[in-house]
Design a protein around this nucleic acid. Sequence first.
DNA 1: GCAAGACTGAAAAAGGTCTTCAATATATAT
DNA 2: ATATATATTGAAGACCTTTTTCAGTCTTGC
Lengths: 157, 157
Amino acid sequence: MSVFSHKPHHHDHDAERFVSEVVRASRERGLRLTPLRREVLELLAQADKPVKAYDLLERLRDRHGNAAPPTVYRALDFLLEHGFIHKLESINAFVYCPHPADSHQVPFLICDVCSSAVEVCDERVAELISAQARALGFKPQGQTLEVHGVCSDCREA
Amino acid sequence: MSVFSHKPHHHDHDAERFVSEVVRASRERGLRLTPLRREVLELLAQADKPVKAYDLLERLRDRHGNAAPPTVYRALDFLLEHGFIHKLESINAFVYCPHPADSHQVPFLICDVCSSAVEVCDERVAELISAQARALGFKPQGQTLEVHGVCSDCREA
DNA sequence: GCAAGACTGAAAAAGGTCTTCAATATATAT
DNA sequence: ATATATATTGAAGACCTTTTTCAGTCTTGC
């Protein structure tokens, strides 16, 4: 079963709200959230867990039979650039960002069992690491913070 | 100029010492640091900055004309597994670990100008992030902590 | 309306990693 | 020492991930 085919559950509401929030933010900032970009965003929001580029591509082809890799990568680039989604470098996957309004740099907890990924909404790690970097004369500009392990749901099972 | 072709400088000594330390650790732990694995390790130590798998492969071919991708990836897997090197997920590159004796999880500062990468030898970030993860019921097993930016050397120039 | 810039389609290539199977070498247990 | 099991390497190839390029289309701003 694909990450997309799932019964409605409590997260669908979050997904919809998230998409409308991005729509609004794009309007405010004068960004062009084109149909293509929006579709990719919706796919990510519906999946509610990290998705790989080729899974997105496959899904896009349902409605755009001609979609090629650059189609999805360009949309992802746009969404990344404006902070609407994140890329998880350690698993080459993309995930929507539940609070795209405030720019932030937070760690992700990636479950190696169910492959869910949640943000740790706490800037302390990012701040500590930035402080340590600056203390070494390094000017920090971006962070990749990913923790692998087993989430609480999977530990119970 | 490749990352390998460089004049001798103060790091060469570190590189040699690092390799012998790994040789010793392997003996102690009963690991088979075969000639191939050792060669990859030496290439990484000499480079003194992150190196991509295909650059290593190219270099390996100087002495093993038959080397194929799995040749280098298998050696890298071995070295990673035993903590002798690190993989930088955000740039798909590998770097030797200056203190392979003590297992550790530390952030890397990756300069986007000169592409150097240094470890921040301070476990506080890893501990904080682990504590936050556990507080959420998540059992942490591995971390990817990478900060991009500009190193002090490059800021001066 | 027109020029400049932004976005998409299409083809291809480059870059990165893994699977498989056979051959060889090393370690273990008689 | 020999046979067996295990680990390592060679070789071919596939698969996954990402980018480049060029041409065409759409928007935006003048």
